[in-house]
Computed example of a mutant assay.
Amino acid sequence: MVDILVRNVDDELAARLKDRARAQGTSLNEVAREALQAFAKPSQAEFLKIADRIASMGPRFPGSSVDLIREDRDNDEPYR
């Protein structure tokens, strides 16, 4: 883990963060970590790029899965 020191935090901002921490029953550090994590989460474009990369790792099936799902749903056989 890395320690990050943030200097010159406005007094009003610090008070709001402390109030939030007190209301959540947690530490100021935890509230700051959550805020940083929310700020640094991937954008939708980055998320879609990652999802496309993961999808490309698996096999591609021709056609739509809708037909397969309907076939399975409409099958009267008790077990296959």
Rank of each mutant, 00 (worst) to 15 (best):
Q44K: 07
I50N: 02
S43N: 05
E71G: 12
A55C: 10
G63W: 03
L68N: 13
K41Y: 07
P59H: 07
A51M: 07
R73P: 02
R53K: 11
I50R: 06
F61M: 01
R73H: 10
L68F: 13
F47N: 06
Q44I: 02
R60A: 09
I69E: 11
D52H: 05
Q44F: 09
D52Y: 01
R60N: 08
V66L: 11
I50A: 00
F39V: 09
G63Q: 05
S65M: 15
S64N: 12
A55F: 02
Q44R: 07
R73K: 07
A51I: 04
D72T: 11
D74F: 13
V66Y: 12
Q44W: 03
G58T: 13
K41W: 04
P62H: 05
I69Y: 12
P62Q: 05
S43M: 14
R73S: 10
P62V: 05
D74L: 15
D72R: 13
I54N: 09
A45K: 04
N75R: 13
R53F: 00
A51V: 04
F61G: 01
S56P: 00
I69S: 10
R60C: 06
D72M: 15
A40Y: 09
G63H: 08
F61A: 10
P59K: 08
S43L: 03
A51H: 00
G63P: 01
D67N: 11
F39L: 06
Q44M: 09
K41S: 04
K49E: 03
L68I: 14
A51Y: 03
D74G: 14
L68P: 01
A55G: 09
G63E: 02
E46M: 04
N75A: 15
S65E: 12
S64C: 01
R53L: 02
R73Y: 15
E46I: 01
I54E: 06
E46Y: 00
I50P: 01
K49V: 02
P59A: 12
M57G: 10
P42M: 08
V66F: 05
E71K: 15
D52G: 00
R73D: 08
S65I: 15
I69C: 13
I54F: 09
G63D: 09
R70P: 03
P42F: 03
D52Q: 06
R53T: 00
A55K: 01
G63M: 08
F61Y: 14
A40I: 06
P59T: 04
K41R: 13
S65L: 15
A51S: 12
V66I: 13
P42T: 02
G58I: 06
F47P: 03
A45D: 14
